[in-house]
């Protein structure tokens, strides 16, 4: 369905600009959680992996699809936990407040 592909292309172009605008506001302080957070966001790949494995018909497709699902699940879960752990630390230092 070529029309869908073109629609996706339009959406993709807009998303690139949104990404650029949103990220350029992030302070240096939060560069690590930004990186691991965006790492978590591309964990959406798990959704694609589920679809790919779900439509699989041959054993080879199923095998490769299973690999895709395992890796995607690792990406999304690990990315989330790491980001949350890092941000929890910044949260704590916030509560303590600045200065002696």
């Amino acid at each position: 369905m070529a029309a869908d592909l073109w629609t996706a292309l339009f959406i993709g172009i807009l998303a690139a600009f949104v990404g650029y605008e949103v990220i350029s506001r992030v302070p240096v302080l939060l560069h690590t959680p930004l990186m691991s957070g965006s790492n978590f966001i591309h964990g959406i790949v798990l959704v694609g992996a589920i679809v790919a494995l779900g439509f699989s018909t041959t054993p080879v497709e199923q095998g490769v699809g299973l690999v895709a699902v395992i890796m995607g699940a690792m990406n999304v879960t690990g990315g989330y936990v790491v980001t949350e752990r890092i941000l929890a630390m910044f949260d704590r230092s916030k509560k303590k407040g600045g200065g002696p």
Binding site: A8, I11, G12, A15, A16, F17, V18, G19, Y20, V22, I23, L34, S38, N39, I41, H42, I44, V45, V47, G48
Partner: peptide
């Protein structure tokens, strides 16, 4: 996937 992936690609 297009939106989330592109977002991360740009970031």
């Amino acid at each position: 996937m297009v939106i989330a992936g592109t977002l991360v690609g740009a970031a």
